[in-house]
């Protein structure tokens, strides 16, 4: 039970001479909601990119253990699609939907790595393919309902309101059937009401699907109320970790956020 599903060990990432991540350590336990916070430019998104295979870490290890049974697999250096197939799905800070595909199609894309209709199946449209297609449509629709977007099923993604696009990204990520969902600033650009609803949705997803969730977020109220544990990143370094209460009381964290005062 206490085996983490994600275990990141001493990951570094350099861009030219800039060290965006410096020996970052982090772990996520089964069915946990973990938040990653830090000032702008701290390297949070880079951290996501490194563990999902979009960037290859300069050094360090990323280990996953989907079943939390102590059988960790090393995944750094693997391609993003392989990582997703292994069960880590993400959303993007600057929304990356497929703009000229419908909401439903966007979610259907998420099921791609869990389905297997081939060229042959596509052309002959045999029974297995038809059934698979039906199941995909059904599941995608249900996911859209879950995130409250069923009224937009056949709307092009680019025509959906901004806040809802973030929800659509979550549905699309869920369609890949992950054990760990990574959300990059899911509440960015949302009003307090929407943020609240989003918080409820994230908790519901955790309970309903029994998966772990890790999120990057700047909205402290949301982070404090919903996370089990929080990690704080500053200049690429994990400077603190603990429960929301511990983080709120941690002087290093306060310094990182209000650093300018002390430096002066």
């Amino acid at each position: 039970m206490n085996n983490p599903v994600l275990n990141v060990k001493a990951v570094c990432k350099d861009f030219g001479g800039v060290r965006a991540l410096d020996e970052a350590e982090l772990s996520v336990n089964d069915k946990e909601i973990v938040a990653l916070i830090g000032p702008n430019g701290a390297g949070k998104t880079t951290f996501f990119n490194c563990i999902t295979g979009i960037y290859t870490p300069t050094s360090g290890d990323v280990l996953i253990d989907p079943a939390a049974k102590g059988q960790a697999v090393r995944i750094n250096g693997k391609k993003p699609n392989v990582v997703t197939e292994l069960g880590m799905a993400r959303t993007f800070q600057n929304i990356r939907l497929f703009p000229s595909m419908t909401a439903l199609e966007n979610v259907m894309i998420g099921t791609h790595c869990r389905t297997k209709a081939s060229v042959w199946g596509a052309i002959t449209r045999n029974k297995a393919t038809r059934e698979e297609e039906q199941a995909v449509i059904k599941r995608s629709y249900e996911l859209l309902q879950l995130v409250g977007l069923d009224e937009f099923v056949n709307e092009l993604a680019e025509n959906i309101p901004y806040g809802k696009q973030r929800r659509l990204e979550i549905a699309r990520a869920l369609a890949t059937d992950p054990f760990l969902l990574l959300l990059d600033e899911p509440a960015a650009g949302m009003n307090p009401q929407e943020t609240k609803e989003l918080e409820a949705l994230i908790c519901q997803i955790r309970d309903q699907f029994g998966i772990s969730i890790m999120l990057i977020e700047h909205d402290m109220k949301m982070v404090m109320s919903m996370s089990d544990r929080i990690y704080v990143l500053d200049y690429g370094r994990m400077i603190a970790t603990g429960t929301p209460q511990e983080i709120a009381d941690n002087p290093a964290v306060i310094k990182a956020y209000l650093g300018e005062d002390d430096d002066a």
Partner: peptide, 26 residues
């Protein structure tokens, strides 16, 4: 038939955004 299949959708998605596509397991 190809363009309306799972593969056809993946082609379309790939055309729109390669990175998102890979992140979705394609």
């Amino acid at each position: 038939r190809l363009q309306n299949s799972r593969i056809g959708r993946a082609w379309l998605a790939l055309r729109e955004d390669e990175i998102a596509c890979q992140a979705m397991g394609i």
